[in-house]
Every structure is written in C-alpha cells, then in structure tokens.
C-alpha cells in the first residue's frame, strides 16, 4: 500500500473533531484531565468549548449528559479503563438508560484499550470494556483498527445522535486503510482478505497482528480470510454470517479477556443464533490480570497468542 503513515488514532480523531468544531458550534470537548498532542491545539483554539472536569470520570459523564440533553454534541475523553469502569453506572443510567427516550449525542473516547499501556501495569490495561459496554442497551461500540478509520467516524458520530463508546489504542501505528476508504458504518466490518478454510476476525490492534499472520501464512501458500469487525454492537450480522459460512474454522483474536463477553462471545452468540457449522477458536487473555513487564507481543506470548502461536495453530487445521 502506498502512503503508509504511522500515527495514533487518538490524535487523528481529535484533529478531525477540532476541524468540525470550526463550523459546528454545538460541539463540546470534555476531558478528565487527560491530554494528547492534538488536544493542545484544540483547547487553545476552542477554549470556550473545551472543558477539563478534572480527574473525575463520573462527573465527566454526568456533565456530558447535561450538555447533550440541551442539544449539544459531546466528546468525552479519558483513559479507557477509568472511563468505562470508574464511571460505569453513570454510563448505564445517564447515557444507556436515559438514551432510550432522549436524544443524547455523547461520544465517549476511551484511550488505551487492551494493553496499549503495556508498561503501566494492570490498573491501566483495559481488557473488560468490550464485554461490559456491549451489554448496555442503546450504546454503540466502535473499535477502529487504524487512524484513518478513527477520524472517518467523526462525521458519522455527529449525524448519528445517540450514546457511543469509542475504544482507541494509544500506540502510533501505520494505516491499514487508504484515506479515500468509504466505511459502511451499518455493515460494521470490512473483509480485508478472502481465504480458504480459515478466517480470522479481529478488532482494533489485533487487525494489525492478523495482517502479519496472514502475510506469513501466504508465504506457505495458505490463504487465510480476515475480517476487521469495528462496530461491535450494531453490525450486519446476517451478512457477516454469510461470509463466515464459507469457512470451516473461524478464529477470533482480541486484546481482552476471552470467554467473558468480548469479541469471541459476539461470534459465539452469532454461531449459536444461526446454528452455523464452523468451528470457533478464540485467542486472547485468559482469566487473570497481567503483572508481567514487557511489550504487547511479549504479554500475548505469555498467554499463548503470539503471532507464532496463532500461525502454528492455523497450520494444524
């Protein structure tokens, strides 16, 4: 692919929100004292619509709700683990529940999902957010895999006036998609590669990992399918199932706990609901917190889902 650039999805999404704030005066940007290089420009340029609520995630959600009830479009930015778990009841009552019958355009920007903050230890890891946010009615769950997809979502997020949780990786990574890519937010996934027998489903960072895996396998003439699932709550389930039905084995890879409601459970539920025939295999973190110090790849190696582990598993099918 041409024009590959290494950027953080956090900065490109903030830059795009900032661009929109120029013409759209109804946008507020709130943070729980969390910064980003792109945010330094936004908070100078739009000081009247930038609010730092302090280290107070509960109030971040509550104030966002109040602004949204009055018709404003709100982006609320914080570390993902703290945003999704410290303020969970505020998200439940004041966004999901109230969002049942009030128009609330609150976009939660949780940064540092999975083990993005690999060196900060288990308090900063965010391995639970997919399962706990997914269980809330009326909440959309967006999990972009690169910085192009992240900023492309902003236009849709302004138009689609309902509460959303946007899970962002904190590490800079090359783009997967061309900037001209037209994402279909209702379909909710992209079929990045067609394969035979085995198909991988990934979300966020693990799409990068999966691309490396299918690349390695192609050297041995093994063609593996790859689906980048980015809308984890509302997506075209029947269309996804139609694609998966062509495969014998479906593999999910996520930087989250497995067997507990995450990406793997989304596909498992789909398999049960439609009585699909494929065999499902899931890779992710098992039921324990990660106290090891090391890179992301080292942490996944400790839990048996390094690139090498997954390649040898696929070769066995």
């Amino acid at each position: 692919m041409k024009n590959k650039q290494v950027k953080t999805m956090r900065d490109t999404i903030i830059e795009e929100i900032s661009n929109r704030m120029e013409e759209n005066k109804s946008i507020f940007f709130l943070t729980a004292d969390m910064g980003a290089p792109a945010l330094d420009k936004l908070r100078q340029k739009y000081a009247d619509r930038f609010i730092n609520v302090g280290i107070a995630e509960q109030n971040l959600i509550n104030v966002s709700t109040g602004l949204a009830l009055e018709g404003f479009t709100v982006y609320a930015f914080a570390i993902a683990a703290f945003l999704s778990m410290r303020a969970y009841e505020q998200i439940r009552n004041n966004l999901a529940l109230l969002g049942d019958h009030k128009e609330l355009n609150v976009n939660l920007l949780g940064v540092g999902v999975g083990v993005s903050y690999d060196m900060s230890g288990p308090s900063h890891h965010c391995l639970e957010d997919i399962s706990i946010i997914r269980t809330l009615p009326n909440m959309s769950l967006f999990s972009p895999s690169d910085w192009v997809m992240a900023y492309s979502f902003v236009k849709h997020s302004i138009r689609f006036k309902s509460p959303k949780y946007i899970r962002l990786d904190s590490k800079a990574m090359p783009n997967i998609y061309e900037e001209s890519e037209q994402f279909d937010w209702e379909t909710g996934f992209v079929e990045l590669n067609k394969g035979k027998d085995v198909c991988i489903i990934s979300t966020g960072i693990t799409t990068h990992k999966s691309l490396k895996i299918i690349d390695e396998l192609s050297k041995d003439s093994i063609k593996t399918g790859l689906i980048d699932l980015f809308m984890l709550k509302y997506f075209d389930k029947e269309y996804l199932l139609k694609i998966l039905s062509k495969y014998k084995v479906v593999i999910t890879i996520e930087e989250g706990f497995i067997g507990k409601g995450g990406l793997d459970s989304i596909i498992a539920n789909l398999k049960i609901h439609y009585q699909a025939d494929f065999t499902l295999k899931s890779f992710g973190f098992s039921d324990s917190y990660l106290f090891q110090q090391g890179s992301r790849e080292f942490l996944s190696e400790c839990h048996g889902f390094s690139i090498k582990d997954i390649i040898s598993s696929i070769k066995n099918y």
């Binding site: 109030n59 509550n62 104030v63 109040g66 602004l67 949204a68 009830l69 009055e70 404003f72 004041n94």
Partner: peptide, 9 residues
C-alpha cells in the same frame, strides 16, 4: 452533575 451540564448549556 447532570444539572451542572444543563446549567452550563
């Protein structure tokens, strides 16, 4: 907290 958001709005 919600009232604070409304008051600001």
């Amino acid at each position: 907290g919600v009232a604070c958001g409304i008051a600001l709005a």
